[in-house]
Amino acid sequence: MPPPLRAAVRMLPALLGTRLGPALLRTFFRATFTGATFTEADTHARRDAVLRRLDAVPQAVARRIVAAAFGYDGAAALDAVRVPAAVVRANIPVRLRLLPPHVRGHAITGAGHWVHVHRPREVGGVLDGLVAAVRV
């Protein structure tokens, strides 16, 4: 993520504590969910149901989720993994070539954020390969 964008994103949790917070949070999540989470295969009913549940999340909880998500260091977490692991990427910009050597990276195209829902067979294949590679 470019440094200016990273700085703007880190300001988001602070802005959520202002009077603009609820509207900003809804706008942010709706834009994120609509652009990255859903695919053409998701019905309007599914989209509406997910967004209704999202709107029902209390503001304080949503603020903590956003702050934790943007403060999370996924690279450090993956470096700490000491068991066979896999990262499955759908539409999320994970740089698979930068994964630690002990973590297998897999790109599955045509899926939204819920890659296991949109492409269950492909995810199952990744998991089967991971399990098969483990030597007991």
Rank of each mutant, 00 (worst) to 15 (best):
A23K: 08
G110C: 07
N91W: 03
P100V: 10
A86T: 12
G125A: 11
A69N: 08
H113Q: 10
P3N: 05
A80E: 11
L96R: 06
T27L: 10
G129E: 09
V81I: 15
A23R: 14
V57A: 04
A60I: 01
I92Y: 10
A77L: 11
H106Y: 06
A49W: 03
R135T: 15
T27C: 11
R82G: 15
H116D: 10
H118E: 02
L99N: 11
A69F: 06
R121C: 01
V94F: 10
T37F: 13
F38L: 07
H116F: 09
A60H: 05
A67S: 11
H118F: 00
A8R: 11
V87T: 13
G17D: 15
G74R: 04
F38D: 08
A8W: 03
L16Q: 06
F28L: 12
H106I: 02
A8L: 14
L16E: 07
V115H: 00
A36N: 12
V131S: 04
I108K: 02
A69Q: 08
R63H: 02
L127V: 15
R119S: 03
D73E: 13
G110N: 03
G71E: 06
G125K: 03
L16A: 07
F29Q: 12
L12F: 05
L24A: 14
A8H: 02
G129S: 07
P13W: 03
P100R: 08
V117L: 13
A90H: 10
P120S: 05
A67V: 01
I108G: 09
G112P: 02
D48G: 08
A45H: 06
V117I: 10
L99M: 11
G112T: 06
P93E: 07
A107H: 13
V50P: 03
L24R: 05
L12Y: 07
G129Y: 00
E40Y: 00
R10F: 03
V88D: 11
L78E: 04
R64K: 14
R63Q: 09
R89V: 07
A23F: 01
R52Y: 00
R63W: 00
V136L: 06
T32I: 06
P100M: 08
R97A: 15
G124P: 06
T27N: 09
D128K: 06
G17W: 00
R30G: 02
V57E: 05
V9W: 03
L99Q: 10
F33N: 13
T37H: 11
A62C: 02
L96H: 10
F70D: 12
P58F: 04
L16K: 02
V9R: 13
G124K: 06
N91D: 10
H116E: 13
I65Q: 14
V117G: 03
R10M: 12
V61A: 14
V94E: 08
P4V: 02
L51K: 04
M1V: 14
P100H: 08
A49R: 12
V66M: 08
V88H: 09
R6M: 10
P22A: 04
V88W: 07
G129I: 02
V134E: 05
A7Y: 03
D73V: 11
A75L: 00
G105R: 01
L130R: 07
P101D: 15
A85Q: 08
